[in-house]
Design a protein around this nucleic acid. Structure first.
Lengths: 218, 218
DNA sequence: CGGCCTCTCCCCCGTCCGGCGGAGGCGGAT
DNA sequence: ATCCGCCTCCGCCGGACGGGGGAGAGGCCG
């Protein structure tokens, strides 16, 4: 039962052309079968629930429910969930990391050639230990921790205040910051005060912590 | 020229049995050919330089030169380097991340079954856009940044000093730390002073920065 | 033109911080 | 038995920091 003769695939992508192309490529292989398609995340969930495919090729950006939440819902509600491969156009699409964290086993670029696609599908259909084991989940989680959504206060900082905060996060004193920015110490104090107010912190140490937590540094 | 009829593979692993097993599996496929073997990292470099394979299956832990440095050397010295796949026993072997950062295109678990292995080799032999593009390099780099080797000073901190540093990295004042640790403020000051000395920082803000950079927090 | 924001700088003041030197107790190592 | 490291505290001092004001100059936008 773990090795079906043919790999049953569902395609989830809001663009018909993409689905058609994928279907054409996969259907040419005797051991692969496209059993269903979905144009939205919600549709993907219901189609998968009904058809129980082995592999789902899931676009990340889709109307109604995006690929990430669709992935979550599929994995959460099915006993033997399919292997979900995220399909994306850009390598560093940050959604990809969310999808991996949600449980997708891998990701695939839309510009991949037909052979790569076919082999990827075969691969994920059965491999349980190849390229995307727990380690990828770890990586994706780390990525999320390393690049959280910037808090609201970041947008409120003026340019000068950002500069000052960066220097604070470098361990500079007000006097040093003043020298580096070629302004008076009093000016730096003003900016620091503004930073503290906007970050909701009470001293420079807490502000620097906030900067680190927000990924403001780097 | 980008699509050789047969994929030429070099095996680099210090255990003969592993090489034999890999060779047996790969040789059963008509389109795969094991053209060479190496038992050390240094040997791997010279063998690869001589034979110019399409794919290298590289063990991370090898005598003389490990898989990471062998990977680096191969990628640095060849014009059209082979695709290097790191072979490892444990998913979260931290060397794996080093290898990915060094330019390996993927990694493979030794407990992968024969089919997965074969397909992985075929896959990496040609795919230039599948599962391990630049994004993986990014991930690996992030991993390295997120888990650097702890600086020497970490080991030098006493238990109490670590506690104090954690509270500092939480934005607490000396008085607050004193209350939480149920000691006098003077005691906290002593510990803070020790932390500053051992971390080579001059004030609590810099110490907190050092703690963050060292991954002391989390 | 008249706000509004930003950037610049000034004052005072109380608090916190870090550097200095010292001290006592306690437990492990030699 | 002695020494050393760790933890606990003390006082003193100067400097840095943060809060509270205010104020002038320039730019942007309705």
């Amino acid at each position: 039962m773990t090795r079906p003769a043919t790999v049953r695939v569902v395609l989830a992508d809001d663009e018909r052309m993409v689905r058609t192309a994928l279907r054409a490529i996969l259907s040419a292989e005797p051991d692969l079968e496209v059993v269903g398609e979905a144009a939205t995340g919600a549709e993907a969930v219901s189609v998968v629930r009904e058809l129980r495919p082995d592999v789902v090729l899931m676009d990340v950006r889709m109307p109604e429910i995006d690929g990430i939440r669709a992935t979550e819902q599929i994995l959460a509600t099915l006993d033997e969930p399919p292997r979900i491969v995220v399909v994306t156009t850009f390598e560093n699409d940050s959604y990809v990391y969310d999808a991996l964290r949600a449980g997708a086993v891998g990701f695939l670029l839309k510009r991949a050639d037909a052979d790569a696609l076919v082999q990827a599908v075969r691969l994920v259909a059965r491999s349980d230990s190849l390229l995307f084991p727990a380690a990828v989940r770890t990586l994706a989680t780390e990525h999320a921790r390393a690049h959280p959504a910037p808090p609201a206060w970041v947008a409120k900082l003026t340019g000068r205040e950002r500069e000052v905060l960066r220097h604070m996060a470098d361990g500079q004193t007000n006097a040093e910051i003043a020298r580096r920015m070629e302004v008076g110490p009093a000016t730096v104090k003003s900016h620091v005060a503004a930073v503290l107010a906007k970050t909701g912190t009470r001293d420079r140490t807490q502000a620097v912590i906030a900067a680190y937590e927000a990924g403001f540094v780097n």
